[in-house]
Amino acid sequence: MLPLPTFSVLSPRAVSDAAQMLTDHPQARLIAGGTDLLPSMKYGLFTPPTLIRLGGVSALQEISVTEAGGLRIGAGVTLRAVGRDVRVLSLYPALAAATRTIATSTIQAMGTLGGNLMLDTRCAWYNQSTFWRGALGGCLKCHSAPEGAICHVAPKGKGCYAAHSADTAPGLLLYDAEVELVSTRGARRVAVAALYGDDGRDWIRRAPDELLTAVILPPPPAGRVVHRKLRARGSIDYPLLLTAAAFDPDRGPRVVVSSVGPRPVELGGVAEAWEAGGVEAVAEAAYKQVSPLSTHVWPAPWRKKMVRVEVRRALEAAISGV
């Protein structure tokens, strides 16, 4: 048995109460579905003294149409509800598809969209029990690691490369979605494209007192967006590689690759490659730009080869869907 550390709980009913509690208890962590947070706490990755439960905040559980003609999806809406919503299915099919590839049908009924966008970065050397990590002397991401701990992925480096693994992020980035962050200081919006940083220890540009309240989607783009997930089994597994591609007949293709580092990355030079050589050239450009590291149990060289394959497949699907 993996016991949970001791903590106390707070159960707000309103967003403003939750924001106030985050301000009053700076060491507290938010818990939504708990499907990322509780396994991590059982593994001793962190031990917050207090958990603020978002399950009772009903305002976070709504989906509504915006004035602009897009959708506003509350952070507390479950992945299952997102994946089944008729508006999401018709306007943002790649988002619905992404939610349906997350973990399992049971976990989709528990986990939330907000929790998914706030999912901790993952690494085969870090997401392990206290005992397992202790045998290796921990790593740079472990709070309890002794002095002299190294990164097992890039032992000479000072950075952490733990992989962004949230399935919904690449597609939301191509839909130009934003998130709303609320604190006692007010509300602000951040593009999903600007939400993440380059170090696996400090990957999210959210202030500690901020609560993610909603994902805001503008009206869908002209072309189709496609989400693809590479994983070991057809169920349960976290991604080995995530690819999203969009194809707008007027603007050409866009490609995002994720689970290869601390943030989803929109590839550069895609328009030029497309002009020069179509799908194959874009796939080749992706292969040259993306270098998976040994943050996963599956070999990085194979994952690199699959970048070319997955980008080609995603882009072909986006084009044929136009």
Binding site: I31, G34, T35, L38, S105, T106, I107, A109, M110
Partner: peptide, 8 residues
């Protein structure tokens, strides 16, 4: 359905 091991 809920996984009771990771539900408070």
């Amino acid at each position: 359905p809920r996984l009771s091991c990771i539900t408070l």
